[in-house]
């Protein structure tokens, strides 16, 4: 994909970091009959970063992850994962994967499932026990290690899937909706695990439509809509500060006009939203408002929310599945999501 890249992301080989990208795709296209699941997906993931792949349901996120792993073949385009072509068997030894549709042999215990994946991942047998124990501890399944997985709840199966993905300290971990079956405590645990992966230099690709989750853990995001990356940028760029919101009472119409001299102002009840005001003008604005008899209750820097940017980047009729992070974010003074 080439269109619609937002932000100053370095793209392609021109800005390739030393050691190459962890993931690099160019114009990946995937068709299922007449359905186009990916329509020229181009993106890069740097080594050691936590990259969020965001998009509404049906945007092509899971298809993209399957192509990266070689579980599906692209109709056109190409890509490299950990420096190897898509689907390369040797590269898969360095990749951990939690599928969106996670399911493990129900007749096996959690420990046996992990043992099987140690074998499939070609880990040295001498390391199996240590790896399995560490993975079980990490996801909090030590107490259920010897129970058959068919007795596990969905959340526990997802924890097991995460443990499977982390076996052998992979260089790249692909997590497809990793918290879809987890309770709030489980989600927090996963955020902690992703943070520790980042600390040890593991590249993480987090595929999610849960904006809050992505906002909290990702360094950069790629927003996918209708099979194309419509934006790829850092979280800082995506949620940068934009002006201030001021809660002021006791101000007459003239006072509000004074505010407009500093920057375009939008009034909503007691709140004054000034998106384009500069930092340097804020003390002057507050001084003028007080001088005009206003009582200042709050001055809050305004940030773009991920949800707001996300929604603004999607095609108008592509929003059906978006925004599941909830309305709690939108409309909160200090954020620029949906209007309050």
């Amino acid at each position: 994909m080439t269109a619609g890249v937002v932000g100053g992301t370095t793209r392609g080989a021109a800005g390739e970091p030393e050691g190459g990208f962890a993931v690099e795709t160019r114009e990946l296209r995937k068709e299922f009959g007449r359905i186009v699941a990916l329509d020229g997906l181009t993106m890069t993931v740097r080594r050691g970063e936590v990259f969020g792949l965001l998009g509404p349901n049906g945007a092509g996120k899971t298809t993209a992850v399957k192509l990266l792993l070689g579980l599906s073949r692209p109709t056109a385009g190409h890509g490299r994962v950990m420096g190897a072509p898509l689907g390369d068997l040797a590269a898969r030894r360095r990749i951990g994967y939690l599928p969106e549709l996670f399911r493990y042999q129900g007749w096996m215990t959690a420990r046996e499932v992990l043992g099987l994946h140690c074998e499939l991942a070609r880990l040295p047998r001498s390391e199996w026990e240590r790896e399995i124990r560490a993975a079980l501890e990490l996801v909090g399944l030590v107490d259920r290690a010897d129970d058959r997985t068919e007795t596990f709840s969905k959340g526990m199966q997802q924890r097991l899937g995460l443990a499977v993905a982390l076996l052998g300290r992979p260089d790249l971990v692909l997590l497809d909706e990793p918290t879809s079956a987890l309770d709030p405590v489980g989600r927090q645990d996963v955020r902690g695990i992703i943070g520790s992966l980042r600390d040890r230099g593991t590249t993480v690709v987090l595929n999610s439509h849960l904006l809050t989750e992505v906002e909290r853990v990702c360094d950069r995001v790629g927003i996918v809509d209708r099979g194309r990356v419509v934006a790829e940028m850092s979280m800082a760029e995506l949620t940068r500060e934009r002006g201030v919101s001021v809660r002021v009472t006791g101000l007459d119409d003239g006072g509000r006009e004074v505010a407009a001299r500093f920057a375009p102002a939008r009034v909503d009840g007691e709140w004054l939203f000034m998106d384009d005001i500069t930092d340097a003008d804020v003390p002057g604005l507050v001084g003028e408002l007080v001088a005009r008899g206003g009582s200042i209750h709050a001055v809050v820097p305004t940030r773009d929310t991920l949800e707001g940017r996300f929604m603004s980047l999607l095609a108008p009729d592509g929003r059906s599945g978006a925004g599941e992070s909830g309305a709690a974010e939108s409309g909160t003074p200090g954020t620029r999501g949906q209007e309050p």
């Binding site: 792993l69 579980l71 068997l89 040797a90 898969r92 030894r93 990749i95 994967y97 599928p99 549709l101 996670f102 399911r103 493990y104 042999q105 994946h117 499939l120 991942a121 070609r122 899937g161 499977v164």
Partner: peptide
């Protein structure tokens, strides 16, 4: 169909 092979085939196996 139930996803069991997804995790297996993501490993270095054809």
């Amino acid at each position: 169909e139930n996803g069991l092979l997804l995790a297996v085939l993501a490993r270095p196996i054809r």
